[in-house]
Write a protein that binds this DNA or RNA. Structure first.
Lengths: 200, 200
DNA sequence: GTCTATAGAATGATAGAC
DNA sequence: GTCTATCATTCTATAGAC
């Protein structure tokens, strides 16, 4: 080994779960979105897929393991977009392409993003599990483009919060996906200081 | 009675709680901020103020009553700013002044805003209790300035989410209040399309 | 306003049969 | 992979004494 560090990058996208395990995770994600993690019991998950609690415990040893699996699945959806952006790192369209993908995914999973970003159990999980922390750091490194000054960080925090929070907001619940997407993209670019962002 | 409708405006600011009740609500808010509503038991609240569960139940008949009281207290903090903005409704600085106050309050209560905006129990509460709904509608009426088109609504949703989410974000956890406030105000004005928003 | 004591239900989790 | 049955613990909530 020389000075070249070998960083072990966790690949959420390549994780394998059995079909029975996936049934649990899908049901769990749906219930987490509506009731939060603490508001979702294993009984509720079991009822939702039509089995008993014991059957669920045969697939996952603890409730926390279900939460970890559920978050892994969702972060896996972002992995492709992140890798593409990293490959074009520094390129003028890297950030823009990433944001476009993130917005699309957030809209497609409207009901869930609030929980993923703000549920206290998931927040604790993201802080405790290395692979999750590593992933978030990669994401914000691309978004910040290497600049970590106060203004850039506030901007990134606002963009992350705005995208996640806007898609869930009651004010826009009646908007169709495409309208929401284009408005959201335009306003996000305005936050980034893009000159070509459409004004009214 | 003629065509003039008398709207009964709920005043959160004028609510009265005994000192013992306030001790419960303060402790509850602190615990809600860290663990969420479902993650906070009455035992935890009782332990925090050094009494038994029974003593807590003597002040509030149910856990939900505690949640309602806690949310009332917090919305009460916004009431002054909202009334001032409504008095100047249509005025060119009404929205700006309101946002300034909201940002200040959000920063002062950094730990709590995430819970207030995103906790599933509180979201259900806000939807079920008329006074809360009425209050939120007043808030967004001022923010939107009477325009309810798609673009305005997405903008309002983003601003609400961005302010609430940014102050809690780990990326800006180390920033002092004043730095965060000025950056946040500038970026919020950029979202509003203000020409005087400082660029980099 | 606070306490002890308790009721009744639900929680996460396990053992062992099929 | 799913079941029945069970355990220990915790939960919200109440009764009644001080």
């Amino acid at each position: 080994m020389t000075s070249v560090e070998t960083v072990d990058v966790h690949k959420f996208g390549s994780l394998r779960y059995s079909e029975a395990q996936m049934r649990v995770l899908i049901a769990a994600l749906d219930l987490f979105a509506e009731h939060g993690v603490n508001g979702t019991s294993l009984q509720m998950i079991a009822d939702d897929i039509g089995v008993t609690k014991a059957a669920v415990y045969h697939q996952f040893r603890t409730k926390e393991a279900i939460v970890v699996g559920a978050v892994e699945i969702e972060l896996g959806n972002l992995e492709g977009a992140l890798e593409a952006a990293e490959a074009d790192a520094g390129g003028p369209e890297a950030v823009e392409t990433l944001l476009n993908q993130v917005i699309k995914l957030a809209i497609g999973r409207r009901r869930l993003v609030g929980t993923l970003q703000h549920d206290p159990v998931i927040i604790r999980l993201l802080g405790d599990h290395q692979p999750f922390q590593q992933f978030m750091q990669r994401l914000f490194t691309v978004l910040l483009g290497g600049k970590f000054d106060a203004q850039s960080r506030v901007r990134a925090a606002m963009i992350a919060a705005a995208i996640g929070g806007a898609v869930t907001h009651p004010l826009v619940a009646d908007l169709d996906d495409e309208t929401l997407r284009s408005e959201l993209l335009g306003l996000t670019q305005r936050l980034l200081g893009r000159a070509d962002s459409s004004m009214d």
